[in-house]
Write a protein that binds this DNA or RNA. Structure first.
Lengths: 227, 227
DNA sequence: ACAAAAGTGTTCGATATACACCCATGT
DNA sequence: ACATGGGTGTATATCGAACACTTTTGT
């Protein structure tokens, strides 16, 4: 207990943001190569210190913006990692977030990163600190959420075809889904609506474009979307 | 970014532990009355500062032990609350946990608490800091977990009757369950086993006592226990 | 013409839900 | 004897899974 006055702290707080995107039919995450010690030269999840008067989510969004130039993307707190030995410099507790973005963003290396690149989830390099554990955790959470909620849309552009949406689910969940069952479920879930527009330019018939229904509820006591 | 050296921190880290128990057919949580400023005299979730070389979970277990004398109970990280204004003393980030305990424990007030008492979830008093939000979040998570996993056992003694188990679920989920369906599901889920012993001393037939199967898996891709 | 991809229903098995009585035991 | 509470099975509705063909369009 003893909550009456703040103790002098040798303590730092960071946020790390696992950023996912779909690209070339693969799930990818953004990694930076560390330019400084410790773990200089190793790959890491982008992140940094929380500023003095900044909430955790604002800090995470700031990091995300510095790396990708994106605002207003899907972001969710994941878990807080606080093992006393996780950082050799001292006590550094990190609040991990995960973000889902859309499209082909050129990453920008921050001041502490030599490079920033998209890495496919399969075949990741060794990671600095406990970042492997953080990434594994984020991936589990992404798959879990995808089965229960409509969060998959966050990885697609504003308008998409049902085939593209199904492909996104298949890539992340890792196994094929039945086309007719998929379409029925996603439509009955009432989370997307037709735009009235079509995608053509391909061999075959034009495909109806859909958009996410901003007024969709989902989530609360929702039945599993893909059991 | 700038992760090369630790900044001087005016920052404190606490853990807060929402402790649930079942008592008198009600769900209760342990609250302490604050003995010091800020929020002196108001009710709060038990918690305190994380020590220098202590992991977050160890800190949470220590707080739990100080309040209840219990070790080895169910404990799970909930969420990290870090709004810069949540504590008037300065920047205090708290990692919230929730714990499930069993039986009639006499709470012990810590050094910063004037009293520690069990409060039924319905009709809670005003809480200090952002503790109302933390408690609401914990409650949502408890209900959610109960529907999908077998975590309800953590609120019961080692041996229990099916009627007691069903009552626990009904209290927490808030609506009645069909006796025959409940028994079928919980037995088919294969998470409990007969002890061979019976509870008697009541009017009516003796009730078989069950125990949690320690080798039960559950959780991973488990079907919803009570849809 | 041909290849690629969009769109569309039905059947069958599994699971969830609703529902009522008998009997053992303690008072 | 009576009140309390433990234990048990079935019928129906709903949901999930498997499955194939036709049509459109670009090359």
């Amino acid at each position: 207990m003893s909550r009456s006055q703040l103790p002098p702290a040798r303590l730092a707080l960071t946020v790390d943001v696992v950023i996912f995107r779909l690209h070339d039919a693969r799930l990818e995450t953004l990694l930076v190569r560390r330019a400084a010690l410790p773990h200089k030269g190793r790959w890491a999840i982008p992140g940094g210190f929380v500023h003095a008067n900044e909430s955790l989510e604002v800090a995470a969004r700031r990091e995300l913006y510095e790396e990708t130039g994106l605002k207003n993307v899907y972001l969710e707190q994941l878990y807080t990692f606080g093992d006393p030995k996780r950082d050799p410099r001292g006590r550094v507790v990190t609040v991990a977030y995960f973000a889902l973005i859309t499209g082909a963003i050129q990453p920008r290396a921050g001041d502490d990163a030599a490079e920033a690149v998209w890495q496919p989830i399969n075949g990741l390099p060794d990671l600095a600190f406990d970042h492997k554990a953080i990434l594994d955790y984020a991936l589990r959470r992404l798959r879990y959420k995808l089965e229960y909620t409509a969060v998959g849309f966050e990885l697609l552009p504003d308008e998409f075809t049902l085939a593209e949406l199904q492909a996104a689910y298949e890539i992340i969940l890792g196994d094929p889904l039945d086309k007719r069952n998929f379409r029925r479920r996603i439509l009955e879930a009432n989370v997307i609506e037709e735009t009235g527009k079509y995608r053509s330019g391909q061999i075959g018939p034009r495909a109806q474009l859909y958009r996410y229904r901003s007024d969709a509820v989902a989530e609360v006591k929702a039945r599993r979307l893909f059991p």
